[in-house]
Simulated scan of single mutants.
Amino acid sequence: MPPYAALRAFEAVGQLGGIRRAAQELGIDHAAVSRHLRALEDWAGVKLIDRTQGGRLTPEGAKYLARISAALEEISRATLDLTRRGDDSRLVIWSVPGFAYRWLIRRLPDFYAAHPGFDLEVRPTDHTPDFGRHEADADIRYIRDMSAPGDTDVQAMEIARPVVFPAASPEVAARIGQGAPAEALLAETLLHEDDDSEWRTWLAARQVEVPERLGGPRLWHAHLTLDAARRGQGVVLTNALLAGDELAAGQLVDLSLQPAEPEIRFGGYAFRARKDRWRDPAITKFRRWLEREAARDAGVA
Rank of each mutant, 00 (worst) to 15 (best):
P2A: 14
P2Q: 09
P3I: 12
L7A: 10
A9E: 08
G14W: 00
G14T: 04
G17W: 01
G18M: 06
R21A: 15
R21D: 11
A22N: 04
L26Q: 09
G27P: 07
I28G: 03
A32S: 15
V33N: 00
S34H: 13
H36N: 12
L37K: 02
A39G: 13
A39Y: 03
L48C: 05
G54H: 10
G55L: 07
L57D: 04
T58E: 09
P59I: 07
Y64I: 00
A70P: 00
L72S: 04
S76W: 14
S76D: 13
A78Q: 14
L80C: 10
L80D: 12
D81T: 09
R84A: 13
R85V: 11
D87H: 14
D88H: 14
W94R: 14
W94N: 12
S95Q: 01
V96R: 05
P97E: 03
P97N: 04
P97S: 04
R102G: 03
R102E: 11
W103A: 00
L104R: 02
D110Q: 14
G117S: 02
F118Y: 08
L120K: 06
V122E: 00
T128Y: 13
D130C: 11
D130R: 15
G132S: 14
R133E: 13
R133C: 07
A138M: 08
I140F: 04
I140L: 05
I140S: 02
Y142I: 06
Y142C: 05
I143K: 01
D145P: 05
M146C: 11
M146W: 08
M146T: 12
M146D: 12
G150R: 09
D151W: 13
D151A: 14
A156N: 08
A156S: 15
A167K: 02
A168G: 05
V172I: 15
V172H: 10
V172D: 08
I176F: 09
I176Y: 11
E183T: 14
A184N: 09
A184T: 14
A187N: 13
E188R: 00
T189D: 02
T189F: 04
E193Q: 14
W199L: 02
R200E: 06
T201K: 09
Q207W: 10
Q207P: 02
Q207H: 14
L214V: 05
L214F: 01
G216C: 01
P217A: 06
P217R: 02
R218G: 03
W220K: 11
H221W: 09
H221D: 10
L226K: 01
L226V: 03
D227R: 11
G234K: 01
L237V: 05
N239E: 09
A240G: 15
A243P: 05
D245V: 08
L247G: 07
Q251R: 15
Q251Y: 10
D254F: 10
L255M: 08
Q258K: 14
Q258V: 12
E261S: 13
E263Y: 11
F266K: 10
G267Y: 06
G268M: 05
G268D: 06
R272M: 13
K275V: 12
W278Q: 07
D280Q: 09
A282F: 03
I283A: 04
K285D: 03
F286H: 01
R287W: 00
R288G: 00
R292V: 08
R292N: 09
E293I: 02
A295R: 12
R296I: 07
D297R: 02
D297M: 06
A298R: 15
A298I: 13
G299A: 15
V300C: 11
